[in-house]
Every structure is written in C-alpha cells, then in structure tokens.
C-alpha cells in the first residue's frame, strides 16, 4: 500500500508545471524515503531529477518500493482539477496498475477523486556523480527567469560567466549583443533577494536558451535558484520544494568546435 498526503497540494501542481514541457512521461519511484523521479527530457539532452522527502508529507506510507509510470499530459489534466488550496492524497496498491488522486478542499466540504491508469516505462536509471563545482551561485529565481527570457530574444545560447564579484549572463546574435551583470549582494533585508557566489575558480560556460527557459518553469516553487557550474560538466539548476525536496535540472555546456 502506498499513500501520500500533502496539505499544500499546490506544490504538486507547481512540480507538474516544472516538468511537463520537458517530459512526456516519467516514472515516479516511491519508497519509505519519499518520491523520486529522474528522467532525460524528450529530446534526450537535459536531465530532470526530482526528490520529495517523506517528511514533507502529512501522511506517508509506502509498504513496498514501487514505480509508477505516468503519462504527464494525463497527470496534468488531473492536477488541473485540484484547487491551489486543496490537500492532495495519492494512493496505490502494491504492484499497482492505477493511482488514485483525492482532492480535499480546506473545509473538507468538497472531496473529489480521480484515478489514472499507469503505464510501463522501461527507463534507464542514471547515476549522478558527486561533483565539486567551481562556482555555486544563489540568486532570486524570478530574476533568473527574466534574464533567460530577455536574452533568448537575441540568440540561441547564453554564456554564464562567474567570478567572485558576481555573475554575468551574455548573448550575441544577428541584431547585436546583450549582457546582464548581477553583483554579489552585500546586505539585503530579505534572504530571497540575495545574490551569493561561492567561487573556487572563475568559469565561463555557454548553454542553450531553449533548455534554460524550460527550467525556469520551476520558478513558482522557490524564490531562490541555485546554479552550480564547472568547466566541462553539466550545469545544475536547482529549485527547492518547500523544506523537504528539490528539483534539479542538468544541462551540459556547448563547446566551440
């Protein structure tokens, strides 16, 4: 038996928005530790890794590890039927062929349930090596989304350069160039507005705008985004999910041939 109840059901809706353009289908792995998902995007270029720890759920029971393959267009239809203030409960039997979603309104006067057929996905599991990054930047997620959107008007790739002073985003295209520099913030009242840089050595790497823009669909999950960069290894773009989880996107840099 698997059962997971999340009072703040809107988090699940936001997670869905953060992955549905990148993935057509995905396997959700459930264990006593929580719910995990790991998948390459549809074009097999970027990797999405989602983790929601069991401690973040109001109720979490998972008697046997199970994998639930879901069509994300179908899952999206179901989650759209939940209000932002609803509590969401997922339920499945051991070795399930369906999963049930129950949505309860705050006052418990409206309860709806939907069941969805699961699909068999033969997805390979990838190991993510532990990596020391040359630069780890934390910045407001809305700012990152805006920069990616603004700069992608001018070219297909954004170069991210990081020094101890701050981070710079650059684009060059047919009509000209664009640069946005963010200095590391000295003192900010709100932690969510801070820009912080932990640097071992400076890096400058170029990434496809198309994927960066996909990653920013996770912006509503968290006020801050963390970018981890090192030469020749994939960039990690991480958004926290409440206090109990995260979604990480991996994308390898482009290299001039």
């Amino acid at each position: 038996m698997f059962e997971a109840r999340l009072t703040q059901g809107s988090l699940l809706k936001k997670v869905m928005e953060a992955i549905r353009e990148l993935l057509n289908e995905a396997s959700f792995d459930c264990s006593e530790n929580g719910i995990q998902l790991q998948a390459m995007d549809n074009s097999h270029v970027s990797l999405v890794s989602l983790n929601m720890g069991s401690e973040g759920f109001d109720k979490f029971r998972c008697d046997r590890n199970l994998t639930m393959g879901m069509n994300l267009a179908s899952l999206s239809k179901i989650l759209k039927c939940a209000s932002n203030s609803d509590a969401i409960t997922l339920k499945a039997q051991d070795d399930p062929d369906t999963v049930t979603f129950t949505f309860e309104s705050e006052n418990n006067e409206r309860v709806s349930d939907y069941s969805m057929k699961l699909i068999n996905l033969d997805q390979e599991h990838l190991g993510i090596p532990d990596t020391e990054y040359s630069c780890v930047v934390k910045m407001p997620s809305a700012d990152f989304a805006r920069i990616c959107k603004d700069l992608s008007q001018f070219g297909d790739c954004i170069t991210i350069s990081c020094t101890k002073e701050g981070i710079k985003f650059s684009v060059a295209g047919d009509i000209g160039t664009g640069n946005v520099k963010l200095a590391q913030t000295a003192n900010v009242d709100k932690e969510s507005e801070a820009v912080t840089v932990e640097m071992q050595e400076p890096v400058s790497l170029t990434f496809a705008c198309r994927y960066l823009n996909h990653f920013t669909k996770a912006t509503p999950l968290s006020e801050q985004v963390q970018l981890s960069l090192s030469a020749d290894v994939p960039l990690v773009v991480e958004y926290k999910i409440g206090e109990f989880g995260h979604i990480r996107y991996y994308l390898a840099p482009k290299i001039d041939e």
Partner: peptide
C-alpha cells in the same frame, strides 16, 4: 562532442 554526448558521458547507467 555534442551536448548530448557530454551528458551521456557524465552520467553513468546504474
């Protein structure tokens, strides 16, 4: 190599 190839070489199949 392409971005795709570099992703593949970073991640190992478990």
């Amino acid at each position: 190599g392409s971005v795709q190839q570099r992703m593949d070489s970073f991640f190992t199949v478990v």
